[in-house]
């Protein structure tokens, strides 16, 4: 029955056997105990940085109804450790390896991308959105100008497919996505976690060592889905949807909203085989609905002319 459906998708020039991959930071070689990496559409590493980073003080996670807030702080052992110790774990698999990178400056991003433009890396995902990196949660992807600048410098530094991972913590995501596209990104990942916090009523202290963190999990899905829908209308490069996907149905919603592929993160923490379960579910859905190619679902949300949402009433000015 598996021959009936084509699950493969394209992200720019990169072909994926299916549209399901991990979200950066929720995946490591340890997961090979649970799922077969050769079944995934792609592998996305934890974000690496040039400098060695220990990560944030504990607690690094606090749960919420339907989700969790994390502030791990991107512990990183640097580039040589990644190349010598982490990459070999993925060499036996013929699944494209996407390396997630971060840096404190646009130049830092560019030089890191250049250094990682090596055989074995299929694409670069620039994490310009992680809310924990910079003071007070600020990040490149909060503004179109800084997004355009860092994307342009990255584009000049590498010929690998370049994915820009955007933040929902901005006023105008479509504008930021357009900036990434204009500066030469091959795809945008929408999105990283939503900046948030929680306070412990026993101690009156923030629940996280870092005070603020990023919300993920099913609670964010409707919000990020809406961002994907809006950004899909703004750009013509592929969108990789990422936010609260735990089931095949969630993934299909994202495809319908305009995503060409999806990333699964927090769901893996609850059900470590979530990604392969989702892949199976996508196939089953397509068979049941007689959809020959998963790509037929991309952007296929049906919005009748009269149903076009009137956002004007949402604006306080109106």
């Amino acid at each position: 029955m598996s021959t009936a459906v084509t699950l493969s998708v394209r992200i720019g020039d990169l072909h994926l056997r299916n549209p399901v991959m991990p979200a950066s930071g929720t995946f490591a070689e340890d997961l090979a105990q649970v799922i077969d990496f050769n079944r995934l559409g792609a592998i996305v590493t934890k974000t690496i940085t040039r400098e060695l980073r220990n990560g944030n003080p504990l607690p690094r996670v606090v749960e919420q109804p339907g989700g969790m807030i994390n502030a791990i702080g991107i512990p990183s052992k640097g580039v040589p450790d990644f190349i010598e110790r982490t990459m070999p774990h993925y060499a036996p698999y013929d699944t494209p390896l996407v390396v997630s990178i971060s840096a404190p400056t646009a130049e830092g991003f560019a030089s890191l991308a250049a250094e990682l433009t090596i055989p074995g890396i299929a694409a670069i995902e620039a994490n310009i959105s992680c809310p924990n990196i910079e003071e007070d949660g600020k990040a490149f992807a909060m503004r179109a100008e800084s997004t355009e600048n860092v994307t342009r410098q990255l584009r000049a530094a590498t010929n690998l497919p370049l994915w820009m991972k955007l933040t929902p913590n901005t006023g105008d995501m479509p504008d930021v996505a357009r900036a990434a596209e204009a500066a030469g990104a091959d795809a945008v990942v929408i999105a990283n976690t939503i900046l948030s916090m929680a306070i412990d009523l026993k101690t009156f202290k923030p629940c996280l060592g870092n005070i603020m963190g990023g919300l993920s999990g099913p609670a964010v899905k409707p919000i990020i889905l809406r961002h994907v829908f809006q950004c899909a209308k703004a750009v013509s490069i592929p969108i990789i949807g990422c936010g609260g996907i735990s089931t095949a149905e969630d993934a299909i919603e994202y495809l319908l909203a305009g995503a060409s592929a999806v990333q699964v993160g927090t769901a893996t923490f609850l059900q470590p085989a979530a990604m392969t379960t989702i892949i199976d579910g996508l196939e089953t859905f397509c068979i049941r609905r007689e959809i020959p190619r998963i790509t037929d679902l991309i952007g296929a949300v049906v919005v009748e002319e009269a149903d076009e949402p009137d956002v004007a009433w949402l604006s306080p000015a109106s």
């Binding site: 995946f27 649970v34 504990l58 607690p59 690094r60 994390n70 893996t268 470590p272």
Partner: peptide, 15 residues
Amino acid sequence: EQQMACGIGLCHCCV
């Protein structure tokens, strides 16, 4: 003991 999220080495919450 330590507070954990994933329990299988992915998230680095329990260092």
